[in-house]
Design a protein around this nucleic acid. Sequence first.
DNA 1: CCCTGATTCGC
DNA 2: GCGAATCAGG
Length: 191
Amino acid sequence: MSWTDERVALLTKMWHEGQSASQIAKELGGVTRNAVIGKVHRLGLSGRDAEPPKTAEPAAPPLAAEPAAAEAPAPDPVPEPEPEAEPEPEEAPVQMPPRRQIIPAGQPLPPQPSANEIDPEALANVREVEKTAKRISLMELTERVCKWPIGDPATEDFAFCGLAVEPGKPYCEAHVGVAFQPMSSRRDRRR
DNA sequence: CCCTGATTCGC
DNA sequence: GCGAATCAGG
């Protein structure tokens, strides 16, 4: 696969939309995220919009910038014509949702396992997360999705959380929070 | 041990 | 110019 104008245009568009290199690579097909990143750099659009103020020190102290005889500062009004290599192809402004769509749960949430001696903060967090959980089925479980059960396994609306797991753990960040509570925090929460 | 972008360097 | 390999951070 080569970098045709169209592919470069799509790359540029997606990059400015904030898509990750791997997502762009997947969308384009035939290239790896490395290729995308390499191309991004070659195109000079690495810093997605603002200029990097923290690059390497140019080591150019402005000390003798002013010639001694210069009485007038001689300002330069518009030194940068800024080529603006942004062709901005007439792309259809539609097809806007680059972000992963989320399936809302819209459902009362049956009682959770041992949901009464858990750190209130973590619990609140979980209820929040479960509103936005992906709710995947048993067959959709993989090594890297949260396996926290949501709902009653006996009913149809049962599902697993399905969010991205905390690497190395079986659950997402929020569910790890309630799954692995140190005994210290669960002590004396009953009066 | 998943992801991210950044950089290098042989091609 | 290209991108795999590698590096560096989360």
